[in-house]
């Protein structure tokens, strides 16, 4: 007589594993398709002047066009972390990084009035406002904490850099914020495990990781 119990146990484990895997697969695609359609933002303001009363009347805001392309970098109010935002054609990518183990990449659209709401993995969120094209002031919500930040317009080599590579089977992902004044904050992920990143050469982006020479490149949305 054969007992079915152990087989059922194995079967249950298998089913659970397949179920989790399918969840992962769907999460994965959702997580990587962040840069798809962005209805509205870059839609030409010169759309047919139809007498659409449904459309809210074109507000007489001083800046009707999308915010100019530029990079911004700065620190959080508590000085614990750095935040950099890169704007291109109404889209934004931001990086929050404390230089040790807390980091987040956030993406989203910038509205014509200069406000932005960017989102990242694990519910991270950045709300900011571009003020007079010079400064982004806002907050980052990450890991249950809220960080206020101020990021001033940054000119190369200040800005946001990223490098990815696979070294001896380990997947490396580095993010750096080069602050105005030359300070750097960066995190290097080895297979998803964060640690402080070695400095990059801000002029060339060159950085040596685990004996391997890599190049960090400026990030744009």
């Amino acid at each position: 007589m054969k007992r079915p119990g152990p087989l059922l146990t194995l079967l249950a484990g298998l089913l659970l594993g397949v179920f989790m895997l399918s969840l992962d697969a769907t999460t994965g695609t959702k997580g990587t398709s962040y840069r798809n359609e962005s209805p509205g933002v870059s839609v030409s303001p010169s759309s047919p002047p139809s007498p659409s009363p449904t459309r809210t009347t074109p507000s007489p805001t001083p800046s009707k066009s999308a915010p100019p392309n530029a990079d911004y970098a700065g620190r959080t109010d508590d000085n614990s972390s750095a935040v950099a935002v890169s704007l291109r054609d109404g889209k934004a990518i931001a990086y929050f990084c404390d230089g040790r183990d807390k980091e987040s990449w956030l993406r989203g659209d910038v509205k014509d009035d200069g406000t932005m709401k960017l989102t990242g993995k694990h519910g991270a969120e950045l709300n900011g406002t571009l003020q007079e094209g010079k400064t982004i002031r806002g907050t980052v919500d990450l890991g249950g904490q809220r960080y206020g930040f101020t990021a001033d317009k940054a000119v190369r080599p200040s800005g946001l850099y990223r490098a990815t590579a696979t070294v001896r089977g380990a997947k490396l992902e580095g993010g750096w914020i080069v602050l105005p004044g030359g300070g750097q904050v960066g995190i290097l992920d080895r297979d998803g495990k964060p640690s402080a990143a070695p400095r990059i050469d801000p002029e060339t982006g060159a950085v040596t990781i685990d004996g391997e020479q890599l190049t960090a490149r400026p990030v744009t949305p």
Binding site: D24, G28, G31, K121, H122, K171
Partner: peptide, 15 residues
């Protein structure tokens, strides 16, 4: 190919 990310459970600070 490792994805680095996966489905996450709510209520914890990290995966």
């Amino acid at each position: 190919e490792p994805t680095g990310i996966a489905f996450d459970l709510a209520g914890f600070s990290s995966t």
